[in-house]
Each structure stands twice: as structure tokens, then as C-alpha cells.
Design a protein around this nucleic acid. Structure first.
Length: 466
RNA sequence: GGUGCCAUCGCCAAGUGGUAAGGCCGCAGCCUGCAAAGCUGCUAUCCCCAGUUCAAAUCUGGGUGGCACCUCCA
């Protein structure tokens, strides 16, 4: 398997540190608001990565944190006169529910900041003891970036001298402008945790380093985790700072491979609250099927920026429809799990830094070939077995096609309408049998008025929601 | 201003030295009572200029045009 390492900026052969065991850590959401399409994209990308790693016979331990200590959470709690816990539980539950709707499996570990304070204290202690961190007069603890000769090697950033001077003047107690908070002492009497360093709350960056150390890292490994992932915007400063903390506070580097997913834009615009709420996953799910969203958001390479657009989504849906129509032709038949050449090629494509475009092209070709063979030789036993196996493999590896195909095409249509459509189709079939085509076509128009299309097959007449 | 990324058919999108995958849309045809679905066929030389090479979309230099990060952010 090959992975593009976004720090070394090159595609590297993936080799775990320990045998066939892979540790993966991905920065998860800060639970102060609803998940947007960007959260969905990131979760989907690493969900796919885990599936592909497993298909390559790796044993994967995947951790994605929940940041439930944060200034924005506190702000919201104060605004809504609720407890921190009420806010974080609400959004954590919503996150889980929405991720499930787009087929994202739960990670093996989902550490919360509030449950990892001990690990943070330990790391901060080590950093202070080794002179990589210092406490100011007012109780804040900062990481001393000048103490780390490798600082900024991750994001390959060059510090701006002018800015450096300005910031030091603005922030009275920091030694260097780039120093970042490990611990913020309480100043306004809001939310506090009692730590050995006084009351306050941890900085964002230290949460991840500490959780990785607590849950995934082995003391004497060269790297704390094999792969560290997250959105492209996290490279600096978040990952840079995480890496510095781990490097200076433990005896290993943070990650061997870094993966950063591209951004989701809406109709060419960067997502922002001023654009309204259309970018919330929950709102997208009101309009589009979760699996269609999954397919669409995964349909382009994970490192590219993604432009969310309704026309493209529609085109993408048609591609998924085609797979389900093939599944219809096999519905009810027993699954077969023999490994086929197609499956080997599919895995090979995805093992090349998750090349989804090549994978989807292979799927399209497989579908076309299966349809073609089925059209010309309906009772092709071998083909049936192979196709069933292929569809099951796609479901496992990519999470596409798990639904009942009839349900897939008819989702969102209420019982009453379904009954009415069924009744009309029955009438039409009678008219057709009597070769009364004027009547049957009239009935068809009536069926179509429900926003569905119908298709006559050897197995009978079926309808799909348009 | 600093750093970095990108530019492939009407649209989406692979391909990083060996002669342009796939999907959507469109056109023609097969199938069908007619449709729909399915199938078949057709449609680009890769932003511009210069260079390296037997060979470049792929490498180098220059240009033009987008975008991202540098503050919280997936």
C-alpha cells in the first residue's frame, strides 16, 4: 500500500512499525456545533482508509478524538445557559447519528478531552521539567518554541520576523510569538479544571498529543502512531504544535505518515456561516440520501479540494443508481465470496493512496460488463456468482450498495403513494396485456406524475423515484 | 507580504517520461407496442511560451489564471 505523506510531500510505501498492526489517529470534531460537509468528508476519507487497510490484512487501531473542552463550547454554554456537558453531549450524539447515516463506522477509540486530563497533566509536567514549557506570572503555561530546534519542520513554515516582534509586544508574557498555550489559567471565573498547575483549562493542541500518548503510543517506538490524519488546515498550527509537544515531551516522534484531506467548498465558495446553513450535514441529509452523499463526497481524490454542487451530486447519484440497478437484477440470490480479478484490481487501485477515481472506473466497467453479459446470456451461472461476489466486495471495501435496491430507489415515498402506484401499475399491465396501449400510456402518465419513472422488465414492471 | 498547491473534453475527474481511464450531458443505433432501464458506437493531445529528451499532459525555466494556509477551523 502507498500513502502520500503530506509532510514529506511524496508518495511512500506504507510500512507499519509493528508487524501488521496499524495505529491511526485522526483529529475529530470540536463538539460545539453541528457537523458540516467538511467534517463529513474528513470522516469519510479516513473511514475509507481504515477499510482499505483492513482489506490489506492489517490489524487497525483507529482513534478519532472528541474535543469537548474548548472556548467555543464554553461560550455556547454561557449563551444558552446550559452546562458544558449538555452542549457537548448534544453535539456528540448528533455527530454520531449523522456519521452513521453516511455509512461512517465508529472508530475503535473515541477519546474525549475531558477523560484525558490526566494524560495532559503528565505531558505538560514533562515539558516543564525538560524546559520546553514555562508558566507565566498569571498562571498560563506555554510551550517554548525556541527550545525545539525542529519546530516548523512539519509545515515547513518560515517565520515572519516583523510579525514575531509585534506579537511579543502584544502578548506580554510569552517568550516567543509562536509559543502556544498548553494550559490557560482561569481568568473570568467560567469553566475550570483543577490541575497541578492551578485552575484552568488545557490548550487545544495538547489534547491530541496527550490522547495519542495515552491510547495509542508505545514508549519505545520510534513514532507514537503510524498515521496521523486530519483536514488540510490542521497542518499548521495544530499538527505542528502537536508534533513539537510529542517530540519534546516523549521519546518518540508523533507520526510516521501524515495524511491531510482537502477542503469542501460550496458552489465555489468557502464554507462559512454567512452562506446560511446549507453546509450542515444534517440539512444535506434532509434533501439527499446518506449513501448518495457518501458516494458523492468520496467520488474525488481525498487530497483535492472538493466543490460541493448540486449538479455534480446528481451526476454522481446516477452512477450509484447504476450499481443498484445491477443489484436489482441479482436481488434475492445467495451471496458468493470468491475472490475475483476485479476485486484484486479494485483493492490495488485503492491501495495506491486511495485512488478512488480508478476504483470507480473499475466498478463502472464491471457493471457494464455484467449487464452486457446478462443481456445476451441471461443464465450465465458463473457471471452471477462473480457479480454477487463483486457487489459484496464493493459494499465491504467502499460502503456502497448495502441497501435493498428496491428500497434505495423508493426511499422517501410514503406508503399511500406506493400503494397508489402499485395499483396503477397493475391496471396498466392489464391494459398492456389487452394491447390497449392508449389506456396503458395514459396510466403511465398518471404514474409519472408522482415523480417516478417506470421500467418494464422480464420480471415485471418496476418504478423508481426520480 | 511569506509559504505552498493547482490548471486535462460542455461539466465532474484519473493519469507524473512512452504515445490521453471512467462518469454526467449530447448525438446515432440495438432492444421495446411506445417509453424507461440496459447495451453498442461517436466526441479532447492535456492554460500559454521556450527548453531538456529518441519520446512530455507528465521534467526545467518564464508567463497567465485560480486556490489554500500564515488567527479558531475537517
Amino acid at each position: 500500500m502507498h500513502i502520500f505523506d503530506s509532510v514529506q510531500k511524496t508518495k511512500r510505501l506504507f510500512t507499519p512499525q509493528v508487524d501488521d498492526k496499524v495505529t491511526l489517529y485522526v483529529c475529530g470534531p470540536t463538539v460545539y456545533d453541528d457537523a458540516h460537509l467538511g467534517h463529513a468528508k474528513s470522516a469519510l476519507v479516513f473511514d475509507l482508509l481504515v477499510r482499505v487497510l483492513k482489506a490489506n490484512d492489517y490489524s487497525v487501531t483507529y482513534a478519532r478524538n472528541i474535543t469537548d473542552i474548548d472556548d467555543k463550547i464554553i461560550k455556547k454554554a454561557v449563551e444558552q445557559n446550559k452546562s458544558i456537558k449538555e452542549i457537548t453531549e448534544f453535539y456528540t450524539n448528533a455527530f454520531h447519528k449523522e456519521m452513521a447515516q453516511i455509512g461512517v463506522s465508529r472508530p475503535d477509540l473515541e477519546p474525549k478531552a475531558t477523560e484525558s486530563l490526566d494524560a495532559m497533566y503528565m505531558l505538560i509536567r514533562k515539558l516543564i521539567d525538560s524546559n520546553h514549557a514555562y508558566q507565566t506570572e498569571d498562571g498560563d503555561i506555554y510551550f517554548d518554541t525556541s527550545s525545539d530546534s525542529q519546530y516548523l519542520t512539519l509545515s515547513k513554515r518560515v517565520q515572519n520576523e516583523d510579525e514575531k516582534i509585534n506579537r511579543v509586544e502584544n502578548s506580554s508574557h510569552k517568550k516567543n510569538s509562536s509559543d502556544f498555550a498548553l494550559w490557560k489559567s482561569v481568568k473570568d471565573g467560567t469553566i475550570i479544571f483543577d490541575s497541578p498547575f492551578g485552575a484552568g483549562r488545557p490548550g487545544w493542541h495538547v489534547e491530541c498529543s496527550a490522547m495519542i500518548e495515552k491510547h495509542l503510543a508505545f514508549e519505545n517506538n520510534k513514532f507514537a502512531v503510524d498515521i496521523h490524519g486530519g483536514g488540510a488546515d490542521l497542518l499548521f498550527p495544530h499538527h505542528e504544535n502537536e508534533a513539537a509537544q510529542t517530540r519534546c515531551g516523549t521519546n518518540h516522534a508523533l507520526a510516521n505518515y501524515w495524511m491531510h484531506n482537502g477542503f469542501v467548498n460550496i458552489d465555489g465558495e468557502k464554507m462559512s456561516k454567512s452562506l446560511g446553513n446549507s453546509f450542515f450535514l444534517k440539512d444535506a441529509l434532509k434533501v439527499y440520501d446518506g449513501e448518495v452523499l457518501r458516494f458523492y463526497l468520496l467520488s474525488t481524490h481525498y487530497r483535492s479540494n472538493f466543490n460541493f454542487n448540486e449538479d455534480d451530486l446528481t451526476a454522481s447519484k446516477k452512477r450509484l443508481d447504476k450499481m443498484y440497478r445491477l443489484k436489482k437484477r441479482f436481488f434475492g440470490l445467495a451471496e458468493n465470496r470468491d475472490k475475483t480479478l476485479f476485486q484484486e484490481e479494485l483493492l490495488k487501485a485503492l491501495s495506491d493512496d486511495l485512488n478512488i477515481s480508478n476504483a470507480l472506473a473499475l466498478i463502472d466497467e464491471m457493471i457494464t460488463h455484467a449487464n452486457e453479459t446478462l443481456d445476451t446470456a441471461g443464465k450465465h451461472k458463473e457471471l452471477k456468482a462473480e457479480t454477487l461476489s463483486n457487489l459484496a466486495y464493493i459494499e465491504e471495501l467502499l460502503g456502497f450498495g448495502a441497501k435493498n435496491p428496491f428500497e434505495y430507489f423508493q426511499s422517501g415515498v410514503d406508503e399511500e403513494t406506493r400503494a397508489k402506484i402499485a395499483e396503477l401499475i397493475l391496471k396498466r399491465d392489464e391494459a398492456k396485456k389487452a394491447k390497449n396501449f392508449a389506456t396503458s400510456d395514459k396510466i403511465r402518465d398518471e404514474v409519472l406524475s408522482y415523480g417516478v419513472s417506470i421500467m418494464d422488465t422480464p420480471q415485471g414492471t418496476f418504478w423508481e423515484k426520480v
